[in-house]
């Protein structure tokens, strides 16, 4: 409850001085920028996924990554963002940004052979590496506080639709006498609708290069929250709003990038 109150106060804080400051400081209220960057996705908690981390539900999904290890990856992004000036110091930023995010899970081939007994054809239990590529068009919702050349921002990116390409690397049983194994790969692509939230905080520094303002930023993203079957259930009496729990990935992003304001 306490956390929710703090988050609510943080949310309404930028609106508090909205009416006075926009009147006192007339000027350009909306600014479009080109934005590009990259991020390192890492893990603080153990990267190894223990088979003991059982949660009830779909047997395959719950155990899909048992004994796998999460591998750190890199993310790239580029797109157009729009900043709306709420007051002298506060801004709200949204936009459309393309992100290529990756998820990689890997297991030793020997472990796959020992625990999952590969088939003689590419079968899901013979996978030793999942390579997921999420091509997202993300919408940021960021509030920023500008102080001189620095801007401190907080908020989240959200993705509703992504094109997911997956490369499955399999071990297959090639011969029985003597027993031998070989590896093969399969690529599967398709659109996926899942609501994903990527919370982050950023610090930006504005500098003029050849008379043109350029903003360099550094950021930290904390965890990912993903709803593959999202629904809101309303109930009038007793009043209740029910939203399913997301799948949470305990990861972090170290972001760096640049924003170049566009002139129209």
């Amino acid at each position: 409850m306490k956390t929710k109150c703090v988050l609510f106060l943080l949310f309404i804080l930028p609106f508090s001085s909205f009416s006075q400051d926009t009147i006192k400081n007339p000027g350009r209220k909306c600014r479009f920028s080109f934005e590009a960057g990259a991020a390192y996705k890492g893990f603080v908690k153990p990267k190894y996924i223990s088979p003991d981390s059982y949660s009830p539900g779909d047997t395959y999904r719950d155990h899909q990554f048992d004994r796998f290890t999460r591998i750190p990856t890199f993310t790239i992004n580029a797109g157009i963002s729009m900043s709306v000036r709420l007051s002298k110091h506060w801004t709200f930023t949204t936009g459309l940004i393309y992100y290529l995010r990756k998820d990689v899970y890997r297991m030793d081939i020997d472990s796959v052979i020992n625990y999952y007994k590969p088939m003689s054809f590419p079968y899901i239990t013979g996978v030793y590496k999942y390579n997921y590529f999420y091509n997202n068009i993300e919408v940021p919702f960021m509030f920023g506080y500008r102080f001189k050349k620095l801007t401190f921002s907080f908020g989240f990116n959200t993705s509703l639709l992504s094109y997911r390409k997956t490369i499955y690397s399999y071990v297959i049983k090639a011969g029985s006498y003597p027993v031998s194994y070989e590896t093969t790969r399969k690529t599967v692509g398709g659109f996926e609708n899942a609501i994903t939230i990527y919370p982050s905080i950023r610090i930006g520094y504005e500098e003029k290069i050849s008379g043109h303002p350029v903003i360099f930023y550094l950021g930290i993203g904390i965890s990912e929250f993903r709803w593959t079957d999202f629904y809101i259930h309303f109930q009038t009496y007793p009043f209740r709003i029910e939203i399913p729990s997301p799948e949470t990935q305990p990861c972090f992003y170290l972001q760096a990038g640049v924003q170049i304001p566009l002139k129209f």
């Binding site: 509703l160 398709g190 659109f191 996926e192 609708n193 609501i195 593959t228 079957d229 999202f230 629904y231 809101i232």
Partner: peptide, 9 residues
Amino acid sequence: IAGCKKPVF
């Protein structure tokens, strides 16, 4: 719009 259990894709 996204709030349904049935996947669109």
